[in-house]
Amino acid sequence: MKELSISARECLNAYLQKVRARLRWANSLDADEIERDICEHIERDLDSADEPVEYETVAEVLDRLGSPEQWVPDGEISWWRKVLMRISSGPDDWRLAYISFGLFVLAFFQLRIGMFIFIPLSFIVARGALSMTDDLDQLKGRKVLLYPVLILIYAILGLFLLAGPAFGLVGLADGFEREIIKNYDDIKESLDYWWWTWVIILFVLGIWWIILSGISIAFDKFFKFIFKPFLDKVNKKKLALTAIVAGWLLILVAIGLGWIFGASDGPANLFKQFGLM
């Protein structure tokens, strides 16, 4: 073989690696023999080139040879071998997509470790793959591999962001109820003030959503970054307006329910009994 420049050598090695990866899985072919034939062909094509052979010359020869992916009919390779080939020799963005999906699937086989190790890792790899793509439309088939973990993490994150204060209030109310039942022997059953807890939760959520809308308008880039790529094409102002309207509705519902319970004898009296109202 003629002496090649460093970039030409790298180009040739990468090509031969692709050749090996593609041919290895084709049952009807003698991969070693074909690789030797290809190497001989390249040597013959470079016979007349000056040393060290430059990248452009090697690239031209390889271009004439074509992509090894065209050499073996797809039907000859099973689907799982195609996946392995993508990981071992495919472009980086596809490799990351497969690795991310692999970790995501693995998490369901090892739930304990998976939730804390594989899912976060899968998410990080998926975000890494996204950062390598300027245009989301270029993702195409990779979306199927990358989006499951993103949707899972974003759904959890979104739920906490939207209903975080409510979770806290439910916890407080539950603790409060236990405390009352413990201290007052005559109360054994669940208390009616849970209705009031819901009134307060709806009221707080309404206020929180209005505040959140303001924050999301002010820091829309931050939110887009956190929930990339799902908020990329979302009109933030319309979304925020919807949240404000929904927030006011929740507040109104809370006030309405509060008025109904306040006007009736049942729950309100119970609170008065304990000096809470």
């Binding site: 041919l23 074909i34 062909h41 074509g66 050499w71 073996v72």
Partner: peptide, 9 residues
């Protein structure tokens, strides 16, 4: 018009 590498497989 062919990819020359196709010949060997």
């Amino acid at each position: 018009v062919i990819s020359e590498g196709t010949i060997y497989p």
